[in-house]
Design a protein around this nucleic acid. Structure first.
Lengths: 344, 344
DNA sequence: GACCTCTGGTCAATCGATTGATCACGGTTC
DNA sequence: GAACCGTGATCAATCGATTGACCAGAGGTC
């Protein structure tokens, strides 16, 4: 048992019986009124009397009792790898809005990749705590999938896919990278490097593929690919590799904004001027991008839209149906000052 | 009633009765074993048999049933104004860790300041959904406090205080600003401006007071105070005001990192070199601070520590006890390259 | 007057776990 | 052989809401 907690006696609010007796009706009547039971035939005056008592007492149906009876919790969980990353903040925001519309609450938790952490959440979320599970971020291997399936609630991966995955929603990262590359090519660049995310990240891989496809479509050789880790630190290290590569590049496509912050820093340290010596463009747009030095050109996709769509899919699709969705949404190029034509 | 949701039949897992009958004991035995009831006297062999069945079936006690019976949910809610702000991310992280240690889950929600939003959460969280409520961010006025009290669960403000508030935990913002100011004074600055947060923000006000106290303690006149809004946009605008002020300043203390990003941008735009023409220091340290141009000197406080402490207080203090705590924790000056002695 | 229908409700089982009260039984004590 | 004790459990009420089944009475129909 956990540490004893002494927050005093938990106070219970008024119950449906309180409302019923005060209004002089059966509990069933109260329940049916509040749930808009279509089979209920009742005098308008009785209905009003009941609603008046509900308002007077401030009655709220007890969530535990309700979900015990109905086997639904009106809560869904969203596991993210890192709350400090504003990109996940956007996903959470969108998910929350959608959950609210569906009259549900959102339970968020951060899941690191460790085994204990996974076990912990499996325990917390098992059996009746949530109606469904959204997994943003990686680490969902085959054995874990089975574990999740045994857990009970339906689940869905957000912005992660993979060969064996049956249920996921992702952004159209390939189209985003193609848009970024074509911007660079239109400016006249031909030697474009790619600063990727972690090697095991699925979004990073999809962005890499989009980059390669776009380069090859233009009959250009793909350039250097450096691996970062989606942090400013990793972005700085990746940029150093690119600057040290045998082949000189005139532009870099960076896989996310945090990495781009690091990449710009490393360029500055190396005395490489952006955009005159080197153009930098990033996938995703965050509010700080406009205030970097120089202001960062980005490709904007709606992460909040992704979060919202994930919730909708989770709540409306049958539990075992396959879901393999690439989100269709506008993808915009936000041109700022970190990209320019290459100096000849 | 909300939109009909058709995620198929909710699946129920094995119940305590399944375990009991399979192990050939009463349900009470299973319950007491799993809850370590000290009054339970039982044969070791029976205990093992029961635990074996629990493991075999993957039994998890149903959360709804348990909390219906015990009137405890082992869930606490944390309301934040903005998930995209990494500072709140840190608070969430700390709160989650502490909640996990107390064997509870953390339900997060973003609350905007609007009235509807408040009503909505009041409804969602009323009556038995959570054991307690943590409110990070503002907007808790007198009438809302009463509303919260009627709601049932105990609540606590995080990083917000105010004259009438009875229950809060805050960081020692005054000490942090004093540390920042004394760093600037030691470098030789005498004309130090303050770039604040929103006018109605309580942390911004405490930081302003700390700044004024520190200036006066050194027998210096406080300088210009510009109001931002804790975003990069607001920070840029604030910096412009400071640069346009009649009095010339040689240093600026900025109330948070997001504002500092904007302030550095505005200085750059105005051709003002940091730190040679103007030193900039910020309260709070975020991972991007080291990669800004120039790398930003900051004062570091542990927001995750704040989140964790808030959870502990909420769970362990009696529901009506006053809590007015200024968190004691190390506050560190992280000297980077945005501060330097003033040019004579 | 027997039968039916409609209105406006009521009754009671049920969801799954917890917990205070109770009990059967073998052994010990006096 | 009656009373008592400790061991190792069991019994049953309870938490609060939901929901299928049922029902009383008024009015209408043949």
């Amino acid at each position: 048992m956990a540490d004893e907690v002494r927050t005093g006696v938990p106070r219970r609010g008024p119950t449906i019986s309180d409302v019923a007796s005060r209004a002089g009706v059966d509990r069933a009547v109260v329940s049916r009124i509040l749930n808009d039971d279509p089979r209920l035939r009742i005098k308008p005056s009785t209905r009003e009397r009941v609603l008046a008592v509900v308002a007077e007492l401030g009655y709220q149906p007890n969530a535990a009792a309700r979900s015990l009876r109905t086997a639904r919790t009106r809560t869904i969980a969203l596991l993210v790898p890192d709350f400090e990353n504003p990109a996940y903040g956007q996903i959470i925001k969108g998910a929350e809005t959608a959950a609210t519309k569906a009259d549900s609450a959102l339970l968020t938790a951060s899941m690191e990749l460790g085994e204990e952490s996974f076990e912990h959440y499996a325990k917390q979320l098992g059996n009746g705590r949530v109606d469904g599970l959204l997994l943003a971020g990686g680490g969902i291997t085959g054995t874990r999938e089975e574990h999740l399936d045994r857990l009970g609630p339906p689940w869905l991966c957000v912005n992660r896919t993979g060969p064996g995955k049956r249920r996921y929603v992702v952004l159209d990262d390939e189209r985003a990278t193609e848009l970024a590359v074509s911007h660079l090519l239109e400016l006249g660049h031909t030697r474009v490097a790619f600063l990727s995310g972690p090697a095991d990240s699925d979004t990073a891989e999809r962005r890499r593929l989009g980059y390669i496809a776009a380069m090859e479509a233009a009959n250009l050789d793909p350039g250097f690919v450096a691996h970062g880790d989606y942090t400013a630190d990793g972005g700085a290290a990746g940029m150093q590799q690119i600057l040290a590569a045998k082949r000189r590049h005139t532009a870099v496509l960076v896989a996310n904004v945090a990495s781009a912050v690091g990449a710009l820093y490393a360029a500055r340290q190396a005395g490489v001027h952006v955009p005159d010596d080197m153009s930098v463009i990033s996938i995703h747009d965050l509010s700080i991008a406009a205030f970097l030095d120089p202001p960062l050109t980005t490709v904007r996709m709606s992460l909040s839209g992704l979060g919202a769509r994930a919730v909708d899919l989770l709540l409306t699709r049958p539990r075992n149906e396959e879901i393999r969705e690439v989100l269709e949404q506008p993808i915009d190029l936000i041109i700022r000052e970190s990209t320019a034509p290459p100096r000849r």
